[in-house]
Design a protein around this nucleic acid. Sequence first.
DNA 1: GCGTTCGTCCCCCTTTTATGGTATTGAATA
DNA 2: TATTCAATACCATAAAAGGGGGACGAACGC
Lengths: 197, 197
Amino acid sequence: MRESLFTLLTLSGEFDVPAVFPHAGGIEKHVIEYDPELILMDIDMPVVNGIKGITLARHANADVKILMFTVFEDEDKIFDALSAGADGYLLKNSSPDRLLEALQQLQKGESPMTPAIARKVLNYFSAKKIKQEIYQLTDKEKEVLKCLTEGLSYKMIAAEMKISIETVRTHLKRIYAKLHVSSSTQAVSKALNEKLV
Amino acid sequence: MRESLFTLLTLSGEFDVPAVFPHAGGIEKHVIEYDPELILMDIDMPVVNGIKGITLARHANADVKILMFTVFEDEDKIFDALSAGADGYLLKNSSPDRLLEALQQLQKGESPMTPAIARKVLNYFSAKKIKQEIYQLTDKEKEVLKCLTEGLSYKMIAAEMKISIETVRTHLKRIYAKLHVSSSTQAVSKALNEKLV
DNA sequence: GCGTTCGTCCCCCTTTTATGGTATTGAATA
DNA sequence: TATTCAATACCATAAAAGGGGGACGAACGC
């Protein structure tokens, strides 16, 4: 795989491949030594995996463009890679032309992504509004929950909403019951993770 | 613009364009009437804009695929559109071929995105790790904070980490000081919003 | 060797939350 | 009209969290 990528990129005449490695071990040194513009990174590698590799490479050079080129399309790995600072994410079933195009886009500061990956990323933004309904929170309950996620205490929520603290309590009880939680942190966590507010 | 898109799509022989509208007014009715598989949507339109249009269209048909095709590339509009449930986001400077390809990808359930848009979306994920450093949380503190964001009580965190509850309390005190907060909900809120864990 | 940070643990005391009740009002609705 | 439900409010008690302090060993750097 590494061989054929090296050949592809070199023969394209567009890129110069100064080095190729079987894993991300010592990547910090390598990045400093070769000072590449782009890095093509797999995820599942021995010694140091690609996710960790991103972090390490970023540490050595904050500007180097890193393209994930891997077979993994499970959300965990994608989000881990993107969170670690990957600049693009292409699945290995992409065509050689697409890969070359992606590398050029990276040079322009853009972020090439396989549409299937983009799909998962977008789901992160939209999937929320659906769940919002299933808990059947009333408007007031949502308002209280929103205050809670902003870190307000019962007392502050009461002042903010101009209601008694006892009412805040009552709302919270019902919110907890509806969300099936039993503490403010759980409620905030659920609210933020599922974008209920 | 609408004319030429209609012509392009029709002549491609791949798509059938049942209707074209100058704005998103009455889109719910239109969606129900024509029951389209795909919708190509602009943002800046009179009467009802494209963002609102997404919400309305989704309301009429939760499964219809919506592709934003617009000149806007400011983050607000992008995130509003994606949050509202857009399935893809192409800039109008894309080639006709790219547009046709994008529509086909939509049919497959994928999410075509102009790499420049993807860039902004990715920034959302990675911009965080920067902040993660400024609070200078230690590894243990991060671990405690993570547990807290998962809704665990002090007692449960202590059990989970196999340390005394007093140690948990100490960690929390230091975390609160570093994050400049004074309650668990504030800490969880900050941690989740700024992706500290 | 000395200071610092980290991780660990303990005490005391106050405030806040959580849980379980009960109850009144008004609006919507069957 | 009777019923349901959302929103309001109160009480009591138990549990949890927050804020102040102090202590100690290990690791690290200077």
